[in-house]
Design a protein around this nucleic acid. Structure first.
Lengths: 357, 357
DNA sequence: CTGTTAGCGCATTCAT
DNA sequence: ATGAATGCGCTAACAG
């Protein structure tokens, strides 16, 4: 079904048909009705490829995400999809599984697909070759979750959020607090959060020595468990994201510890599911849906009025804290001290380095 | 960057450039190198819209899913994405939030986008207007998770799986077993699973009276809790999916019950996260990733050798059982019987109807 | 208000 | 092995 055939059947010109679909008021009401009726009968649908080839704009937004297996990004994508729909845009999401090469491939594919702009969550904005490609193609884009002075970003203040979380735990009597993250190199968020942890600890005169990196999902729980079976185990865990926090809950259970009586566990992300767990996950909440929505709205706005996306206008959305059931006062906060720390977890899995501020 | 400009710079014809990218061996090695080098320099990327306009095939598969907020579909999409990539196809996923109208819209949008075929998860294959559109457009498609004799489907045997699960629970001494589902009308899977529940119960001479529908996420936990605070509460819950099972775990906790000592809870889906919970979720597992992969591979296969997708060739993938920690022998299985059942949960939320087999 | 025409970028005949 | 010409379906000038 092409516009030509439809025009023939309706006994009008192609141009008229085109106008019926693009500028309905530029055509007389009765002819419009007529054309629409025939179009209905024939099941005519304007061909998107031809349209974008001709107009040089596709009304499609490219979306680049690490994965949808982490609900954070699924929630965010949901927000993007809604905003895009509302603005009359379609979205074309691609996942990269945290592989840098695929980030770049995704961008190239989206450029070839003629998208009008992109929203992406990259690993490291500072060094991303994908972003180089975008600049080269002069395509408008917004980064979500990432934070970097040279790019237009929508995120939360990861560092401040964790600093605050540490303060809360300290206020609850915790002194030995560990930080658990996935592969730090895989995401700037994780690094910012770790930095916040270190800074937060230092602010209270505490050492931020216990930073455990659990890069492999398969062994994460066992690795965390090992930390928890250490003689001078931490009394609280700050996790770089909610999935890791959930695995930490599991690890604590396997180590024979009760949460939050024996150990407190805090997450980061605020995924919906955390609320349904027992114990309900205490966590730093990000407005995931809103991050997605705002990113798209900002991008669409720029697309609409042809304005540039200024890095200076980057949005820092407010984070929050969900008071779940996985954090409580430190055990023995005022009673007999435990025996001194003797050994730690295997140094191979322990990362004591704390990047400078 | 168009093929024309590239051709000019490389001092060859457009046709040659085209061949370099589509039939590399149909062009002399040195000219190929030459063209590729210039293409590299200019950052040339073949335009997808123009290509699909010309060839009438886009190398894109449309994917229609209810939502990505349920990890089942995220896992499945992940499988689809991998298979599509491997076959040289891009995917264009659209979510419908279980709204029939959006199912149809999605299909129309995908048709307009010129997709070569589609994989979809619909609510009710039997009455789906979206599928009518597909047939009308004569586009190849495969249904995932759905099961219907008139359509090519990739799914598991929901009914058999639940029958088996009921048998397992009965073998563990359970007699009062309830079935919890979301809105039944929203998915044929849920109905098949309920049917399996009824059949399974009847097979053991038990009544399948306790079928609770919890259509609203917001109140699901409280609704389930109400059931669990019934005098003659069930000793086991079979949940229509893992998310509901997780909420049931929560509801049990809120009702002061210990899982699995006081009550057993079984899920359906086998989402990865269930493994990390405490108690680890006992559940019927579907090969979600494989369902996605196989659906795409089947579709791509048909696309490749121009063959039709026969409903008779529908695949029934094997389900499995994950032995978690949320199911155990019924309490008091051999000791004093509890007082007889007096009242049930409010009838407004109780659906005792059991569709015929 | 409506029709005619040209060209978006590409793959594909048909020549050479 | 390569080049010239055509048209996929559509929209945007321009003409009437």
């Amino acid at each position: 079904m092409s516009i030509k055939q439809l025009a023939a059947r309706a006994d009008v010109s192609m141009a008229t048909v085109s106008r019926v679909f693009n500028f309905p008021d530029k055509v007389r009401a009765d002819t419009r009705q007529h054309v629409l009726r025939i179009a209905q009968e024939l099941g005519y649908l304007p061909n998107a490829s031809a349209r974008s080839l001709r107009t040089q704009r596709s009304k499609v937004l490219g979306i680049v995400l690490p994965t949808l297996l982490n609900p954070v990004f699924a929630e965010c994508l949901d927000g993007m999809a809604q905003a895009a729909r509302a603005a009359g845009y379609a979205i074309l999401p691609i996942t990269t599984d945290y592989e840098l090469e695929r980030e770049e491939q995704a961008v190239l594919q989206l450029i070839a697909a003629d998208v009008d702009g992109m929203v992406l969550v990259v690993s490291q904005p500072a060094t991303s070759r994908a972003l180089d490609r975008l600049r080269a193609a002069a395509l408008p884009y917004v980064l979500a979750y990432n934070r970097h002075a040279a790019h237009p970003c929508v995120s939360v203040d990861n560092e401040a959020a964790v600093i605050e979380m540490v303060a809360r735990l300290v206020a609850m009597g915790h002194r030995r607090i560990a930080f658990i993250s996935g592969q730090l190199a895989a995401s700037d968020r994780a690094m910012q959060r770790q930095r916040g942890f270190c800074e937060g600890m230092h602010a209270h005169g505490l050492h931020a020595d216990d930073c455990l990196e659990v890069p492999f999902i398969e062994t994460a729980i066992q690795d965390i468990r090992a930390l928890l079976e250490t003689p001078a185990r931490p009394t609280a865990l700050v996790c770089s994201n909610d999935l890791i926090a959930i695995r930490s809950l599991r690890a604590a259970h396997l180590a024979g510890l009760t949460v939050p009586d024996d150990i407190s566990i805090a997450g980061f992300d605020g995924i919906a599911l955390g609320n349904d767990l027992t114990p309900a996950l205490s966590t730093i909440t990000q407005p995931n849906h809103t991050i997605g929505r705002d990113s798209v709205q900002w991008l669409v706005g720029a697309l609409t009025d042809g304005q540039a996306l200024a890095p200076q206008a980057s949005r820092l959305l407010p984070h929050g804290f969900r008071t779940g059931e996985s954090c409580a006062r430190a055990p023995d906060a005022s009673s007999s001290p435990r025996r001194k720390r003797v050994a730690s977890v295997p140094s191979s899995t322990l990362d004591s380095s704390c990047p400078p501020f």
